[in-house]
């Protein structure tokens, strides 16, 4: 096992949707300032695992969670903790780009405003900065006030990235963030992630193996709600220990 500083560490996490046992005794660590990719067949619990990191699964009715998820050593399922702080710290990018029903500017400014930044100048600065980081600034700088829904899907996803970054999270979660995009836009988002890992811890779910290979520093292979194998990307892709990992990477199970 490689030694690294975990940013998120999960211990014996169990999640049930009603009686349906979706995540079983998950124990994994997410390394800081690297890209961790979660792979696994459809329905194995990838989205659920990702959403348990920022407690977005709380929204699901009838869910029950046990075990520990620690972010920077802090147990986020502890009742005393303020969920909004955790979510501010952990940004999330959804599968389908979804601009809020407002202007481009307001989309990016939404988070900062929520967290109390109201000065126009400061908001302008934040909006510009993160649209630049997301590689969208040049395309939209002349129409910040127009509705975000008019952007192309690829642009929308970059806008969503800017919106996520604007609350200055430390961790970014992406649930198949390129699956709704054309190949060129997808490549751009991938590129953004590679650049962002200097400053952020990134966790991405994907079912595209080639994308996983391009991006991953660290891999978690999930199968029917269990972690089968987790480790540095090179090890998992080139020399998997488990037969099921080998089969998945070989394309035999999907």
């Amino acid at each position: 096992m490689e030694k690294f500083k975990p940013h998120i560490s999960v211990e014996k996490l169990n999640v049930f949707y009603g009686k349906h046992h979706v995540l079983k005794d998950i124990t994994v660590k997410i390394p800081e300032k690297q890209i961790t990719v979660i792979i696994g067949p459809s329905g194995c619990g990838k989205t659920t695992l990702l959403k348990s990191f920022n407690r977005l699964i709380d929204l699901v009715e009838g869910i029950s969670v046990s075990g520990d998820v620690r972010v920077d050593g802090m147990d986020i399922y502890n009742g005393k903790i303020d969920v909004t702080n955790i979510r501010k710290k952990i940004g999330m990018l959804a599968q389908k780009p979804y601009p809020l029903p407002m202007s481009i500017y307001d989309n990016v400014a939404y988070g900062p405003r929520i967290h109390g930044i109201l000065k126009r100048k400061e908001l302008d600065r934040i909006v510009e900065r993160y649209l630049k980081v997301a590689g969208l600034w040049d395309e939209v700088k002349d129409r910040l006030k127009s509705p975000a829904s008019r952007l192309s899907a690829g642009q929308q996803q970059r806008l969503c990235l800017a919106r996520t970054l604007a609350v200055e999270p430390e961790i970014i979660l992406g649930d198949e963030p390129t699956s709704a995009l054309d190949p060129v836009s997808a490549k751009r988002i991938e590129q953004e992630f590679i650049e962002l890992k200097k400053d952020y811890t990134i966790v991405i779910v994907t079912h595209i193996l080639r994308q996983a290979k391009r991006l991953a520093d660290h891999v978690i292979f999930l199968y029917m709600g269990e972690v089968i194998e987790a480790g540095p990307a090179r090890e998992i892709f080139e020399d998997p220990k488990e037969a099921r990992t080998r089969a998945y990477i070989g394309g035999e199970i999907s």
């Binding site: 979510r87 501010k88 959804a94 979804y98 809020l100 029903p101 939404y110 929520i114 969503c160 919106r163």
Partner: peptide, 9 residues
Amino acid sequence: VREISLALG
């Protein structure tokens, strides 16, 4: 919409 907003804290 709800999910995005909540996820932003």
